[in-house]
């Protein structure tokens, strides 16, 4: 006899995720990066400002600091890579914290209310998405001035479009379902129907979006910093790759390697996890 006890969508999803070894490994990688980022934020690890050796010392196993060699000023590339983790994770997190609420709110009201509200929101995001993304990011970075703060904002205000689209579609579908009609019959107002009834049923899309958005933001930060529009005055993976552009000419490859190493695992992990989350959370693919 099969257990017929109802499992919630979330418990079900978690169970499926738990069984997916690759996804769990990815999750561990992400947790590890997050811990490293937090420790770096607290200033407990990776004192990247310190000079640990001569200019452009190649990698050596003597100490952790010189493990990835040193940069132009004799600073540890390993510590810079770790500091880059902090920047990358914070960009991912903050830009998601900005874009997710925008996407959810706009998608929800557009889908729920329809009519002119829908028209306005759809117009807004089609206009926004018709501008090539990187151009838009560059334009915003120019307006706000360069620096990590404007990267947060630039990514935050451009990345909500795909989420809003999905949420809008789901709301259009859900608002006519029986349970919503029933809630209306019981006297639930618009706000209550949107937040208490429909939103919990579409929230898994937000989770999926979050994992993809996080990774996209990390990549965007690297690109912007490489173009000189990003982080100023502190290391990030993009800045390290920008350095490498000059240094490779003198045979210094370790900054490129460090940044690539740092970026590779976290981007891969988010990709794998995003896929696994979609599989786990979307009932249709059961």
């Amino acid at each position: 006899m099969t257990a017929n006890v109802g499992r919630s969508l979330w418990a079900d999803a978690w169970l499926r995720l738990w069984r997916d070894r690759l996804a769990m490994a990815s999750l561990c990688v992400i947790v590890l990066y997050s811990v490293v980022a937090l420790l770096a934020l607290a200033g407990w690890i990776a004192p990247w400002k310190e000079v640990v050796g001569g200019s452009y010392q190649p990698p050596s196993g003597d100490s952790l600091a010189t493990f990835f060699g040193t940069d132009l000023f004799g600073r540890s590339v390993f510590y810079k890579t770790i500091h880059g983790t902090r920047i990358a994770m914070s960009v991912g997190l903050v830009s998601s914290l900005i874009s997710v609420p925008i996407g959810v709110v706009l998608g929800a009201v557009a889908g729920y209310f329809g009519k002119w509200v829908d028209d306005v929101v759809v117009w807004l995001y089609t206009t926004l998405s018709s501008i090539p993304n990187i151009m838009l990011l560059i334009a915003i970075a120019f307006v706000l001035g360069k620096g990590i703060f404007s990267i947060y904002i630039a990514l935050g205000v451009t990345a909500w479009v795909s989420l809003a689209r999905v949420i809008r579609g789901e709301f259009i579908k859900h608002k006519e379902r029986e349970y919503v009609v029933a809630a209306e019959g019981l006297g639930a107002g618009h706000f209550s129907r949107i937040v208490k009834h429909i939103l919990p049923n579409v929230f898994h899309f937000v989770i999926i979006h979050l994992s993809i958005q996080f990774m996209a933001a990390i990549k965007a930060e690297v690109i912007l910093s490489f173009l000189g529009l990003g982080v100023q005055g502190q290391p990030s993976w993009g800045v390290m790759i920008d350095d490498a552009k000059l240094e490779l000419a003198r045979g210094v490859w370790w900054q490129l390697a460090g940044a690539t190493f740092g970026m590779f695992f976290v981007v891969l992990a988010f990709n794998v996890l995003g896929d696994a989350l979609r599989d786990a959370l979307d009932p249709k693919v059961k």
Binding site: K49, F73, L229, Q232, G233, V239, D242, K245, L246
Partner: peptide
């Protein structure tokens, strides 16, 4: 803006720090 200019800026950030 420019890569070498950025490195020079990093030098300034370091020494004034």
């Amino acid at each position: 803006a420019g890569s070498t200019e950025r490195q020079m800026t990093e030098y300034a950030v370091r020494v004034f720090d």
